[in-house]
């Protein structure tokens, strides 16, 4: 049996409200809040990035896993905001955890699904018997161009999962991947902000891939929505996960524990993985959880997890995701936010 043996979450303390951004650009905050079902988003401090958040989330995952980090045979970070263009994030992560030198590492990119890609690969290597433990992290300090719709949602956070064959907190019952070529969101080399296809990112992109992946994994496993206690879909805004859930036949109660986006924003590669951490925080032994990510470009990874008795032993060994989200918050004004996100150009 292979599965998750430890998990951890990290979210920066800084927040900015939709009203604060709307005030600067002269847009109607209530309509954004209603349309996107968003209230505020997390903002990284200047000394926080994909690497620092990955290290902290992974340390929390190691605490829950109770393993010697030197036995982690692979460590992968999925992100669209790796701090270096050339130099791996994963080497810093593995070194900080004490997993080096006998460790395989790679930085992955696939818009918002790079995190579940890492989970997919690490899980598969453990299942194949190539490594004892594998670490998969989804982390981002994503950027939206000033005044763009993405600025209201692009946020920061990280989720880390350690996979192994013994002492699982959630066993992997099935995996499935669905992918096509889709120019719905991109960022070219040397460009600071991404571009996107507006409404094109919805129907043919997000909804097509997530519904196909969810139906694909349920068909492969012989399950239906009623077999799942909880489901997590990628959360680019508040509305999409509920709408795709309705299309597939899931109800609000199945979605809500992993639905963080209204207070967190879209953490890109960390989005659906963070939803899984908050769901594991409240799940009971025997619960079955469906996770379906989405990354523009485009594709969805789907996983079915079955929670074990060990969840009750480990969940309190590290901070719970909702607690991190709801405590020690600091609200920024737009000026400070613009400084933190390097939107202000200073004289050289």
């Amino acid at each position: 049996m292979v599965g998750i043996i430890g998990y951890g979450a990290y979210i920066p303390r800084n927040r900015i409200k939709v009203e604060e951004i709307a005030k600067v650009w002269g847009t109607d905050a209530p309509s954004y809040k209603r349309g996107l079902m968003l209230e505020e988003k997390s903002v990284p401090a200047p000394d926080q990035d994909t690497i620092t958040m990955s290290v902290e989330a992974s340390r929390r995952a190691i605490r829950r896993a109770g393993i010697n980090p030197a036995e982690i045979g692979a460590a992968y970070i999925g992100s669209e905001s790796h701090p270096y263009a050339v130099k791996p994030s994963g080497t810093v992560l593995a070194e900080a955890l004490g997993a080096t030198p006998e460790c395989h590492t790679a930085d992955l990119e696939f818009a918002c699904k790079a995190g579940t890609e890492c989970m997919f690969i690490a899980l598969s290597l453990v299942e194949a018997g190539r490594i004892k433990y594998g670490l998969g992290v989804g982390a981002d300090t994503s950027q939206g161009a000033p005044g763009d719709a993405l600025e209201y949602s692009a946020a920061a956070g990280a989720a880390a999962f350690i996979f192994g064959k013994e002492n699982c907190v959630a066993v992997s019952e099935e995996t499935y991947a669905y992918m096509t070529d889709m120019p719905d969101f991109w960022r070219r080399e040397y460009q600071y902000y991404p571009q996107h296809g507006g409404r094109f990112t919805g129907e043919p992109a997000y909804f097509t891939h997530i519904t196909a992946a969810a139906r694909g994994i349920m068909k492969k496993s012989g399950t239906s929505p009623k077999d799942f206690a909880y489901v997590i879909f990628h959360q680019p805004n508040g509305k999409f996960p509920f709408k795709v859930g309705q299309i597939l036949g899931f109800n609000k109660a199945q979605i809500e524990p992993g639905w963080l986006v209204n207070k967190l924003g879209n953490t890109y590669s960390g989005s659906s993985p963070l939803g899984l951490t908050s769901t594991l925080d409240i799940a009971k032994p025997g619960d079955r959880i469906l996770l379906v990510s989405y990354g523009s470009g485009a594709g969805s990874d789907a996983f079915i997890w079955k929670v074990t008795d060990r969840i009750d032993e480990v969940r309190d060994l590290a901070p719970k995701t909702r607690d991190i989200l709801d405590t020690n918050k600091k609200y920024l004004e737009y000026g400070e936010y613009a400084k933190f996100r390097h939107k202000i150009l200073k004289a050289e």
Partner: peptide, 24 residues
């Protein structure tokens, strides 16, 4: 907590290390 300490300009190495954060 693991944080960025400083960086060598826009093109140089990013230096990581520890800082203190409140214990909550």
């Amino acid at each position: 907590e693991f944080r960025r300490i400083s960086q060598d300009g826009k093109a140089g190495v990013i230096f990581y290390g520890y800082k203190f954060v409140p214990e909550i």
